[in-house]
Design a protein around this nucleic acid. Structure first.
Length: 432
DNA sequence: TCTGGGGTCCTAGGACCC
DNA sequence: TCTGGGGTCCTAGGACCC
């Protein structure tokens, strides 16, 4: 048996902990550059603000309806998440932290009243952190997610589900007919794993509710769609297909990308931005104890605006796997200089670190450069510690140094950015 | 004027090998 | 004129998640 614990309107709830005057008011938290809504209070949802809706489309509600729009404070949300997660872990034996505001907890072997236990953990989280949560319980991840959705919706929209299911919903405690009634009241698109595309196709085929989906034949679903959706159907039927992952593997790719507040046309500010992205990505890389073999850098114009389009990416191999900020920044800037072309209003750029490996792979090596690399590793570690203690960006590298030995290589297109094209066939390789 | 920033998994089809 | 077939690896692309 599994539980899914999820903070309600998480970013907004974090803000309300420190600004109680926001309670009861419509509030949204905005993305970087205040571009669009990424968290909405119930009151803001009731006003019709949609997830990821551009700010300019609902800004009028600030005057008309007293809507409060806040810039995001991700450091705060991360801290609040840590506190919430450690309390949620008390619900069972193992926990998988699934996102900043959600975790699955394994309830197998837990005796007694699961619902009562979930209620008291929920109360503790509310009391100790100020974050309201909902808990869904079910025999599979998909059913626990669905139960969580029911718990949230029953609370937010009275009449949508029986009031008994509000805040904590335990599907395992229900008789089959009660369970079916809940599934029949849930739109198919709300099921975990059914997105916009597949949701449309299902509805065209007359599959309207979660119960309809649960009644499909898994083999048919596999033939018509995929094994992914087949698993969803089986999980809805109560057969676990997705395991709890309480020791997630290190990330295989690490990215830092941003939309710009204003269009960028010149190379120098772009280099500045990309250097910052590279440094952030390298920090994340060191935090998980990995080295990167490739650095991908990209820049593109806005897909929403008219005018000439530009979209290119370039992968720059590092001479040897590294997590050194200077080497990674240098590679990113090198790639950027190769792909840049003046005359475009660039809206977004980013750096991705690829072909990651564990930093122990270099341990056996004895040559001088590796030794120098290790010294630099200790330096980078010291930088990270200081930045953790005194705040992001307290200590930064002043220069990435001169471009070292140059080697020719053949450009490789990445799958993630197929629309990107470039004439560059040869660029210098960066030194690790 | 103003449109997020991360990730993961699966599959089809081509390249290549024997 | 006839023109193998199966296995594996890699990549592009699609779909999903929060």
């Amino acid at each position: 048996m599994l539980a899914l614990i999820d903070g309600n309107n998480f970013y907004v709830s974090c803000e309300r902990v420190f600004k109680p005057s926001l309670r009861g008011r419509p509030v949204v938290v905005l993305s970087n550059n205040d571009g669009c809504a990424i968290s909405r209070s119930d009151e803001a949802k009731a006003l019709g603000v949609k997830m990821a809706q551009p700010h300019f489309e609902f800004r009028h509600l600030e005057e008309q309806e007293g809507l409060v729009s806040l810039s995001a404070n991700f450091t705060l949300y991360g801290d609040m998440s840590d506190r919430m997660m450690s309390l949620a872990a008390g619900l069972g034996a193992a926990q998988e932290i699934y996102s900043i505001d959600e975790s699955f907890v394994d309830l197998s072997g837990i005796p007694g009243d699961l619902r009562g236990r979930a209620r008291s953990v929920r109360e503790r989280i509310l009391q100790w952190t100020g974050i309201p949560c909902c808990v869904g319980i079910g025999p599979t991840k998909t059913l626990a997610k669905l139960a969580n959705y029911i718990a949230k919706t029953a609370e937010r929209k009275p009449g949508s589900y029986p009031p008994l299911q509000a805040q904590v919903c335990d599907l395992s405690a229900l008789a089959p007919n009660e369970m079916n009634a809940l599934l029949a009241s849930t739109e198919v698109g709300e099921v975990w794993g059914v997105g916009r595309r597949i949701g449309e196709q299902l509805r065209e085929g007359g599959v309207i509710t979660a119960l309809d989906l649960a009644h499909l034949d898994p083999a048919t679903v596999r033939r018509r769609w995929s094994v992914v959706l087949e698993r969803t159907v089986r999980e809805l039927q109560g057969l676990p297909c997705i395991d709890l992952d309480d020791a997630p593997a290190p990330k295989k790719e690490i990215a830092c990308t941003r939309s710009f507040g204003h269009p960028v046309r010149e190379l120098p500010p772009l280099i500045e931005a990309v250097s910052e992205f590279a440094a952030r990505a390298a920090e994340k890389l060191r935090r998980q104890g990995s080295l990167a073999g490739l650095v991908l850098v990209f820049a593109h114009t806005s897909p929403f605006r008219p005018g000439p389009r530009f979209a290119r990416s370039l992968t720059v191999p590092l001479r040897r796997p590294t997590s050194d900020t200077a080497a990674i920044t240098q590679a990113a800037v090198l790639g950027l200089e190769c792909l840049f072309e003046p005359g475009f209003d660039l809206a977004k750029a980013g750096v991705m670190l690829l072909e990651l490996c564990d930093d122990s792979v270099m341990q056996g090596e004895l040559d001088l450069e590796v030794e120098v690399g290790r010294e630099r590793g200790r330096l980078m570690h010291a930088v990270d510690v200081l930045n953790d203690r005194y705040g992001k960006g307290t200590l930064r590298l002043a220069s990435t140094g001169a471009v070292g030995e140059q080697r020719e290589w053949t450009m490789k297109q990445r799958r993630r950015t197929p629309q990107y094209t470039t004439d560059w066939r040869q660029v210098p390789v960066a030194r690790a």
